[in-house]
């Protein structure tokens, strides 16, 4: 298949499957994007995992643990989708540990109170869904099917997060303060999850042409803000953006400028938890080495028994 035929297929909204011919740059772009997505699910287990042992009721604890477990499951689908492109999970993890592969910067912020479990579910999962709903139509078959599965669970997560937020915003004065503080800390990092402005996003061009991405960063961000403002109003919390205002003419909310210095700092490794998150993952990986080795040795012995 030629480049032209490939593009024709994309334009006709046909999915590209693992065995189909694809330009090397398309493959590379997908590996980068899907692995980043997989790593985000896995590293994303940590900020929420931070509160499992301290969840304030048995019900809250079970919901949170189930949610973090779902994320591990999402990571698993996505690593598998990525493996269809000819790279192993081990290589992907190595890239993460060497800093060659990234994950979403949002997980480099600490979770400091129980209300953060609400904010993460409501805002972070909320932002992720906007992106993932759009990615259900991505051109690569295994990625698209993974997204369909993931979206179902994510919308449940977002509702749970909003429920925590709403309970706290309507709770004791201390709880309300925690809820507002969580919103204050997570608002800007959440809207930065959509990445740089379209004009500053170097990879958007090909990704749109190949229909890996279906909507631009700015379009997705706008759609997230539009649906979230009202949700904050309902539970009586204030979004920490003095420039936030409904624009009748555009039919969208206008909003203030993000702190791009902070954004690039965190992307480049200088955020509050970058080192902690990566160290945690490396440590778990290293601590598990003897276990993986034993499992492999045992399975090799069993295979030999069958052979002999």
């Amino acid at each position: 298949m030629s480049k032209e035929k490939f593009q024709e297929k994309i334009d006709a909204e046909k999915k590209i499957e693992p065995k189909d011919w694809m330009p090397e740059a398309y493959r590379k772009h997908l590996i980068r994007q899907i692995s980043q997505h997989a790593h985000s699910e896995i590293i994303g287990m940590q900020p929420e995992g931070n509160w499992i042992s301290r969840a304030p009721s048995l019900r809250a604890k079970m919901i949170l643990l189930a949610k973090v477990q779902d994320e591990a499951g999402h990571g698993l689908y996505l690593y598998s989708a990525c493996e269809t492109l000819g790279i192993s999970r081990q290589e992907l993890i190595q890239q993460l540990h060497e800093g060659k592969a990234k994950y979403s910067s949002i997980f480099n912020y600490p979770t400091l109170s129980w209300a953060d479990m609400g904010a993460v579910g409501w805002l972070v999962d909320g932002a992720a869904i906007v992106n993932q709903v759009s990615l259900q139509r991505t051109s690569y078959g295994p990625y698209s099917r993974g997204m369909v599965k993931i979206c179902k669970e994510e919308s449940f997560h977002q509702r749970q997060g909003y429920e925590i937020m709403s309970e706290m915003a309507n709770g004791t004065p201390e709880q309300k303060e925690m809820a507002q503080d969580a919103l204050n800390r997570f608002w800007w990092p959440s809207i930065m999850m959509f990445g740089p402005h379209d004009g500053d996003s170097p990879r958007t061009g090909n990704a749109m042409k190949w229909k890996i991405k279906r909507q631009t960063n700015d379009e997705l961000r706008q759609s997230f803000i539009d649906k979230t403002v009202h949700q904050a109003e309902i539970i009586g919390l204030t979004i920490p953006d003095p420039d936030l205002k409904w624009n009748e003419e555009r039919g969208h909310y206008d909003f203030g400028e993000m702190d791009w210095d902070e954004f690039w700092d965190v992307v480049n490794g200088n955020g509050p938890c970058n080192k902690q998150r990566l160290d945690h993952h490396k440590k778990a990986h290293d601590d598990g080495k003897w276990v993986r080795k034993a499992a492999k040795a045992y399975s090799d012995k069993q295979k030999n028994l069958v052979k002999n």
Partner: peptide, 28 residues
């Protein structure tokens, strides 16, 4: 539940969380 995100493999992380969830359910 303290194992969550610390398992030796991703599959085992999920399995241990599952067992933990079963036991929380039983306790409940």
């Amino acid at each position: 539940s303290e194992w969550c995100s610390k398992g030796p493999t991703l599959e085992e992380d999920i399995a241990i969380s599952n067992i933990s969830l079963d036991l929380f359910g039983q306790a409940n």
